[in-house]
Design a protein around this nucleic acid. Sequence first.
DNA 1: CGGATTCTTGAAGTCGCTCAACGAACGTGG
DNA 2: CCACGTTCGTTGAGCGACTTCAAGAATCCG
Lengths: 265, 265
Amino acid sequence: MCKQHGAGQAPVPPNRCAECRFAGMCLLRGLEPVEVALFDGIVRRHRIGRDMYLYRIGQPFTSLYAIHFGHFKTAQVDRRGAQQVTGFAMSGELLGLDAIAGGRHACDAVALEDSEVCEIPFARLQELFGKIPHLLQQFHCMMSQEIQREQALMLVLGNMRAEQRFACFLLNLSERYAQRGYSPVSFQLRMSRDDIGGYLGLTIESVSRLVAKFRNNGWIRLDNRKLEIVDRASLEALAGGMRSAPGAGLQPPPPSRTIPLRVAA
Amino acid sequence: MCKQHGAGQAPVPPNRCAECRFAGMCLLRGLEPVEVALFDGIVRRHRIGRDMYLYRIGQPFTSLYAIHFGHFKTAQVDRRGAQQVTGFAMSGELLGLDAIAGGRHACDAVALEDSEVCEIPFARLQELFGKIPHLLQQFHCMMSQEIQREQALMLVLGNMRAEQRFACFLLNLSERYAQRGYSPVSFQLRMSRDDIGGYLGLTIESVSRLVAKFRNNGWIRLDNRKLEIVDRASLEALAGGMRSAPGAGLQPPPPSRTIPLRVAA
DNA sequence: CGGATTCTTGAAGTCGCTCAACGAACGTGG
DNA sequence: CCACGTTCGTTGAGCGACTTCAAGAATCCG
């Protein structure tokens, strides 16, 4: 399963943020070249092998990590050992934001494949905030995005049925790959069924059955984690609340139980 | 249900943050008196009546709001109209952090009782960040806390059974009242069963049955939203993963399905 | 190739949902 | 103050979605 953590790998010189393909999604967004150079000075790049921990729950917090390439999952474990996957992170995304408050990491971060991260020592980042106001803004923006992302997942976990959850999951991945210039209809799933289940609040068996159903209905093709979205419209309808009917068609959802808002005159 | 939004109420002079009972939980934590005075200058206090919106999804973001007293719920609604309550906020807590990224509010915030908030114009807060480094740190801390809080809820929604969710909910409230100097064993539930259900990902009927069960088992007393925690130990055991047995006793949980971590030699 | 891991499929069970009816609390107006 | 309508909460019966348990197939990797 997961190997012992591997933070502190040998750095991988040279790192030139100016040349980074994902700088536009990272903290550097909108920065001047001079400012990028300043930022460059505090960053160190590391390789993290597959199944290695970038950090673990309880470890002291010193740095944030921007993903240069590769994929990570972040997960919490409860007392019983069951894990809740709180997110799948890909290039350009920032890990460790939840640790600022307590001074210790509040979740595990595990590489889903061989990956590279840019370590950003938080103390030095704070120094830069004073010199680069725009960097601070971008930082706040990314923290806020993280909050939004989690709220969206709460909606999935709290209100959706399994099919809907899975459709949302696939569409979310698709969208993020599109943002990064990859194909939105064909990509590799980097995570196991178990991870998907842990993310969506389902068992591994349920995920497997969903895969079978989506495949049989001709909505996706999937073999060996290689995914192809065949019928995006149906997935979107599903994600939006439509229910799938036995004949592979879609039906409108039952009425919501919450009363519509009354609007003052 | 919920009335039309009521932001822009008459301000309630005078607001003296220095005298605020909850300054220690708010952005002011650890600030010097001079700095508090600066902060005071940008804040305006507002009354928000019960069931009024502090802000609504899609409204342009201009200010954060610190709760001076009272209670709010924050909620998202999906396309079907079903609502996911993303949090219950009480005095000293900060609302609106999710809106920084998009420039628009990403959820609704509704007062659960007559309340007062301190409006903090974000642009002016940003100006203060340059002058009061400690304020910036505290701000980051609060954003990070928000992320942690949401991750904890994701664990509840994704991994726990109804009883466990409800126990966690009650204990969480209890803890937060304790932090504020109120009784941790006896307090008023400010939210409806519907809100609790929306928060925990359960139906109103399930919440009602949980209340009955918890009461019958002698774990809580509850009438008319007045709650008393009678058997905290049982609630904690439940929240920790114990299952309640028919005879009102508690039983150890079934083994987790996730394989224990392998530790390198 | 062989063992471990990951994934799939089936059958049975259970938890929480749906539907329905009723009771209690609240507040509004007569 | 009481009658009334409305909202809120409770309770029961039946059902359905997802889980649990179990076994087997496919894949990975040394």
